[in-house]
């Protein structure tokens, strides 16, 4: 197994773990972290793919995509966290479930 394959498999595994957080965990903060873990997994796959090029300098195109991707994912996270706080302030809920135990 090569170095690239190790990171590619890790990316696949982390994508599924992030998907678990997004789909299964009810708390909105867990969902945001799940999205972020999925983003990191995709970045891992992209940067590993960039490493296929022989020689010391990796492929520039995936690197450029990952760089902008990190900044954009932080922006999306900040926006979704602002939404979560607003939901909490307005309704007191931290999940999107219809039947809440304390309701």
């Amino acid at each position: 197994m090569t170095q690239i394959e190790i990171y590619l498999l890790a990316g696949a595994a982390m994508f599924c773990i992030g998907l678990y957080g997004l789909v299964v965990r009810p708390h909105l903060l867990h969902k945001v972290m799940g999205l972020n873990v999925m983003a990191v997994a995709v970045f891992l796959v992209l940067v590993s793919v960039a490493r296929r090029v022989p020689g010391p300098t990796p492929d520039a195109l995936p690197h450029a995509m990952v760089l902008t991707g990190i900044v954009v994912s932080v922006a999306a996270t900040a926006y979704s966290l602002a939404l979560i706080k607003r939901i909490y302030t307005e309704t007191g809920a931290v999940t999107l479930q219809e039947t809440d135990d304390d309701a």
Partner: peptide, 20 residues
């Protein structure tokens, strides 16, 4: 860093770990 992307490592440490 292990995947030869030091600038992405810097961005990730500042944003992914720091700001997020």
């Amino acid at each position: 860093v292990k995947l030869a992307a030091p600038d992405i490592a810097l961005t990730e440490a500042a944003l992914g770990a720091g700001v997020t």
